[in-house]
Design a binder for these strands. Sequence first.
DNA 1: TGCAAAGATGAAACTATTTGCAACTCCATG
DNA 2: CATGGAGTTGCAAATAGTTTCATCTTTGCA
Lengths: 142, 142
Amino acid sequence: MLPMQPGKLTENTIRSSGHHITPQRLVILDVLKGSNGHASADEIHSHVRSRCPKLHISTIYRALDMLKRLGLVTETALGDGKLRYHLHVKGYHHHLICEKCGRVEEMDEATFTPLKAALKRKHRFHADLRHLAIFGRCQACA
Amino acid sequence: MLPMQPGKLTENTIRSSGHHITPQRLVILDVLKGSNGHASADEIHSHVRSRCPKLHISTIYRALDMLKRLGLVTETALGDGKLRYHLHVKGYHHHLICEKCGRVEEMDEATFTPLKAALKRKHRFHADLRHLAIFGRCQACA
DNA sequence: TGCAAAGATGAAACTATTTGCAACTCCATG
DNA sequence: CATGGAGTTGCAAATAGTTTCATCTTTGCA
């Protein structure tokens, strides 16, 4: 059995949720895949320009919003007045953001399992812990 | 020994951090104190108008930014395109936000103590868990 | 295939938030 | 209790992000 390409997996998720695969979205996804960090809408826009000059920034915001709803993209406010976007291709993860140096560390879900259970038990709340950004101080800045 | 008024405590924090107490800020703080939920900058502005018609909305944004830095106010994105602000007068708390009905439940810090310890132990990260908004489904919408 | 409906796009208008600046106010200090 | 400098304010303009709408595309299905 061949492994499914990450691109195809993403496209299937989009399609099976009733959304369309469009050339614009493919370019946006490709830019997101290439950006190894957290890109702002504006940064995505300028990267996209060369390949698709008429692609309007509102299309980017709408694409990001859809991807966010589907859990394929994380939106994070890193404190500089812009929202940043990050593609989930290899499962979910969370962000530890240093308030001082701005470094972003990624971590897996496991640490949150007890919290998730506690929220369900104590508050009867079913937490969707895919989008978590936790602020604080990293080891170096503590 | 008399208990310190909450207002005075807040004012001392502001003053001792090198910021000024101004009539504008007193009105803004008063509105925040009165708003029992999560007020947007615009909502604060319209409440403030009656008492201080010339108070500009950028002054509100700047006051909120200062209060946020001092840890006196929490800024939360509830997903409606506006940021919401909440005054911390009685200790910190967190938000459980239902993705379906939009209901916001507040919860205390205690549930996060094990998570905080785990982050420090496993990632050497000193989490500042005062700003947490957790999305998911509430009991009714689960 | 070919079509209709659901969904997406670009453009412009609109709302939300931030910033630059000159004038003004607070308050620690003398 | 006057003063100077740091901090604030109001305004205008800039930057971010959202929404409306007419037009165009994608996709499931006949």
